[in-house]
């Protein structure tokens, strides 16, 4: 039984490996899902409202209607993800019941629990969680997350927080890699994570799961920036369907992630994409979603 659970976790980490080098797009309708698939999305995130609209609407934001998610599952052949609230393990049970491919325990929705995250080891479906730094990432992995993404600041079109989170995580990983082994015990204490995970980072110089960028990515240049900073793939939320020409922008972001170091190609991909999402600066917003869930 224990071995079965361990193999299931391994299979779930491996699905994230298959998504690498790809773009996961937020979609709210089957039609948007098809547009995303045709543009080259490696997975879609099904949700009723994209983060920019959640931000604008205010109020409590919850898991999407399972019927709406099923409509999207039927519309595309690529993996379908959906969000549940932080700590809301019953929403997660419901998503598992409709055989979602990945659950995002997400700070974009209103948290259901201000202390505890979901015990993700109790589930057979995989979870992706947001993290601002290495400690958060390893705590989520210890709870059973099989994929990590930066939190960024969703629904803003402002990439600054995703950059901050990715740089911070890289710096902390580099620090642990350079430590003496006898210093790792204290580091585990400081980060509030198990020693084994710190040892893994020390030995491998990376997280034990795939790490994507998310939050505020709006242009091919933003996506390539996150890839050059070490992201293994990119989530794009509001940036696509809040822009002037979603098809073209989505396809350009996909190609930018594949060829993220090719300046000439990035220049060509950035041309004539129509209006980007308007965006709001982090100083102009009252609600910092990234503060949710530590």
């Amino acid at each position: 039984m224990e071995q079965q659970a361990a193999d299931r976790y391994q299979l779930n980490k491996e699905l994230a490996q298959m998504l690498k080098g790809g773009v996961i797009m937020d979609v709210t309708t089957p039609e948007q899902a098809r547009i995303a698939e045709e543009a080259g999305a490696c997975a879609v995130m099904a949700l009723e409202r994209i983060p920019a609209d959640i931000r604008a609407a205010g109020g409590v934001s919850r898991m999407s209607d399972p019927k709406m998610i099923k409509g999207i599952q039927q519309a595309v052949s690529i993996p379908v993800m959906a969000k549940c609230r932080i700590g809301h393990f019953v929403e997660a049970q419901i998503l598992e019941a409709i055989e979602i491919d990945y659950i995002d325990e997400s700070e974009v929705l209103s948290p259901a629990d201000d202390i505890y995250h979901i015990d993700k080891t109790k589930f057979r479906v995989p979870f992706v969680c947001g993290a601002r730094d290495l400690g958060e990432a390893l705590r989520r992995i210890n709870e059973g997350a099989s994929m990590i993404r930066t939190k960024g600041e969703p629904g803003t079109g402002d990439v600054v927080q995703a950059v901050r989170h990715m740089r911070l995580m890289n710096a902390e990983i580099a620090k642990i890699t350079a430590m003496r082994e006898d210093e790792l015990f204290n580091e585990a204490k400081e980060l509030q994570v198990p020693y084994d995970l710190v040892l893994y980072v020390h030995q491998h110089g990376r997280l034990p799961v795939v790490n994507f960028a998310a939050g505020g990515v709006a242009t091919p240049a933003d996506a390539a920036l996150m890839m050059q900073l070490g992201a293994e793939g990119v989530f794009v939320g509001s940036g696509i369907f809040k822009s002037g020409n979603p098809q073209k922008r989505a396809a350009a972001i996909v190609k930018a992630v594949t060829n993220f170091t090719d300046q000439e190609m990035l220049a060509a991909l950035s041309e004539d994409l129509g209006e980007a999402m308007v965006g709001i600066n982090e100083q102009e917003i009252e609600l910092l979603m990234a503060e949710r869930g530590r």
């Binding site: 298959m18 790809g22 045709e38 080259g40 490696c42 052949s77 594949t258 060829n259």
Partner: peptide, 15 residues
Amino acid sequence: PGGESTVQGKLLREL
């Protein structure tokens, strides 16, 4: 390699 065939097929063509 493994991944999504829809994405890879499209990118191999368009690139």
